[in-house]
Computed example of a mutant assay.
Amino acid sequence: MPDSPRPAPLPYRQVAVSDTLRFNTPGRVPFSVEFMPPRDDEAELRLFTAAEAFHDLGVSFVSVTYGAGGSTRERTLRVARRLATKPLTTLVHTTLVEHTVPELIHMVRAYASLGLTNLLALRGDPPGDPTGQWVQTPGGLRYASELIELVTAMPEGRFFDIGIASFPEGHYRAKDLQQDTEITLRKLRAGAQYSITQMFFDVDHYLRLRDRLAAADPTEGAKPIIPGLMPITSLRSVRKQMELAGAQLPADIERELLSAAGGDERANRDRIREVGIGITTRMAERLIAEGAPDLHFMTMNNVRATQEVLHNLGMAPAWGEEYGHDMVR
């Protein structure tokens, strides 16, 4: 059988995320950030102001999330393209929910034509209720591993660097950690080059994930596992995020935050924030000591909390008007 025709070289191609993990960095370890597609013009301005600040701080790559059911598809693509021209190495999240195979192929080709060749392959959450029952879209795919196989089989697939999600506490839909390990390895064997974890607040869970993947498959399990961190700025928001993720806030951290709240979260929000930033800094320090390849911050499209953690790590200037920083950032 003759070889399939090879696609023409792309006019523009992103640096691979997996390559950024090996570059020299001005900080102790590379760091990256996650953005969400903005809802309106004001939010879009805030996102790109944040992107400029992170560019100046030396971010290794940025990722752009993808709403359930493709609800942010056009905004995700527009934002990713603009970020990529800053230039920032840009990772585009892509999910299976409410997309048929032809639609997924069209999306991948659109990414390739724009040089957006970093893809995070996700099954995705059900629209409306992230913890609800997952239903395969008619004519679509069932697993993220199938999306990876689809992309790598396309002529354009040779241009792509693919990442996946991994779950330090195990995915809440997995029956146990063994099944979670098998599913994660299936995605890596399909062609993914690295994973980014769901946010977590117990570093031991990250280390156990790394150990169980390496023990089950020394080759595929050795691929980089990037820890996902969300700087804690509010007790209410961190509880909500953990609920959506199907995970739990460790009891000792919750006690520390409750102590800072002193029975009145609103009145003591600054103290909660201070304690939360300290917790995130301690986690990051340990992750660096344990050899994490990158620190990936969920920013909620803001800079200040992440920059404060980076400053505590000796990886960024101090934050504040007294240091000449624009507080809009």
Rank of each mutant, 00 (worst) to 15 (best):
K240W: 08
Y194E: 00
M230K: 10
G221H: 08
L188K: 05
D211F: 01
L229I: 14
T219C: 02
R189M: 14
H205T: 13
E285D: 13
P231L: 08
A267L: 06
P227V: 09
E265G: 01
G228R: 03
A215K: 11
V275H: 09
R273H: 13
P293C: 03
V303R: 01
I226W: 11
P218D: 11
L295G: 11
N312R: 10
L287Y: 08
G191L: 11
R269Q: 03
I279S: 04
M230Q: 12
M242V: 00
Q198D: 04
S237A: 12
H311L: 12
G191N: 09
P224L: 01
P224I: 01
V203C: 05
T280C: 13
N302S: 14
A267H: 06
V203M: 10
A215I: 05
I196E: 09
T197E: 15
Q241K: 15
L185M: 04
K223P: 02
E243D: 12
P231K: 11
R210P: 02
N302E: 04
D270P: 00
E274Q: 14
G314N: 08
M242N: 08
D294N: 15
R271M: 06
Q193H: 11
A214I: 13
G191A: 05
G246A: 13
N301F: 02
V275P: 02
E290C: 12
E265Y: 00
N301M: 05
L207M: 10
L295C: 14
D204G: 15
E265A: 01
T299L: 08
A261F: 02
P250F: 00
R186W: 09
A305D: 13
R208L: 13
T281S: 13
R273A: 15
E308R: 05
M230Y: 08
R273Q: 10
N312L: 06
S259I: 13
R212C: 12
P227A: 11
K223L: 11
G221R: 05
E256H: 01
G263W: 01
G263D: 07
L310A: 07
A190G: 06
K240C: 12
I279D: 05
L188Y: 06
L310H: 09
G291E: 02
A214V: 12
V238H: 08
N302H: 04
G291I: 00
A245L: 04
I277V: 14
G191C: 08
L313C: 14
